[in-house]
């Protein structure tokens, strides 16, 4: 039996130093913008899907159900591949970044729809009635009374969605977006120092997510200012 030898750990400090900025830069100019843009479009789509699900029109409910089911029932990696590599067969060509935005937005739209729907339903029925009795219409009650209260409930789950999204952007590397992880991959192609470079990438993702969780805490305490439990 071959002896198991734990290799001597030597860290290539110059490589670590020189590779850090290109990897971080990939994060700053691709990963973060990709996550933010996709989240904004994704939330808009999720809001629409949530409203369709809540509508009394059967067809609207059906459309939202099918959409959510497809998004949740298929891997994001496959969705990305269909949009970037598949759609050109139909004559629809998109840039890698735009393709990633489309796929990630659609993904968020499917997952966050149920979160938003549940948070809207969590607002007591009496709030609707209070809005109606002062003369508001559906849209006014929804926008001014229900959504601000639903927002408070939905911040923790939507923050999770966003943090997942930041990490999921790494899948965009498969469609040639030179984001954080792809930058690390590119450098390994010449240096072969996989452990170092992928650990660096992991570290930067972790820092991003750590900062986001701090921001999440701030938003939560701000939205909690009108609730008795603090």
């Amino acid at each position: 039996m071959a002896p198991f030898v734990l290799g001597e750990i030597t860290i290539d400090w110059p490589l670590a130093f020189h590779s850090f900025w290109p990897i971080l830069q990939g994060g700053l100019i691709y990963t973060i913008p990709l996550a933010i843009i996709s989240f904004i479009f994704g939330l808009a789509l999720a809001m629409l899907m949530a409203l369709l699900r809540l509508s009394r029109v059967q067809v609207a409910q059906g459309i939202a159900r099918v959409y959510i089911s497809i998004i949740r029932g298929t891997p994001l990696l496959v969705q990305l591949a269909i949009i970037f590599y598949g759609l050109p067969d139909l004559g629809i060509e998109v840039s890698p970044f735009a393709g990633a935005v489309v796929a990630l937005s659609m993904n968020v739209g499917g997952y966050a729809a149920e979160t938003i729907r549940a948070s809207i339903l969590s607002v007591p029925k009496g709030q609707w009635e209070a809005g109606y009795t002062i003369g508001m219409n559906y849209a006014q009650v929804m926008r001014r009374i229900i959504l601000p209260q639903a927002a408070r409930v939905s911040v923790p789950p939507l923050s999770n969605t966003f943090i997942s999204l930041v990490k999921d952007t790494s899948l965009a590397s498969t469609i040639t977006v030179t984001e954080l992880f792809r930058r690390a991959q590119e450098i390994t192609a010449t240096s072969y120092d996989f452990l170092l470079l992928y650990s660096e990438a992991a570290f930067i993702y972790w820092v991003f997510c750590f900062i986001l969780s701090i921001i999440q805490g701030r938003i939560e305490s701000r939205l909690d200012r009108y609730v008795a439990t603090h």
């Binding site: 009496g126 001014r144 009108y226």
Partner: peptide
């Protein structure tokens, strides 16, 4: 309507609760 369980808007101050209808509607 004045409700049994008041149904005030919890995210608005007392004043904001009272002016909501006059201003918005």
């Amino acid at each position: 309507m004045v409700f049994q369980s008041h149904n005030l808007f919890p995210h608005k101050t007392v004043l904001e609760n009272v002016i909501e209808g006059p201003v918005i509607v």
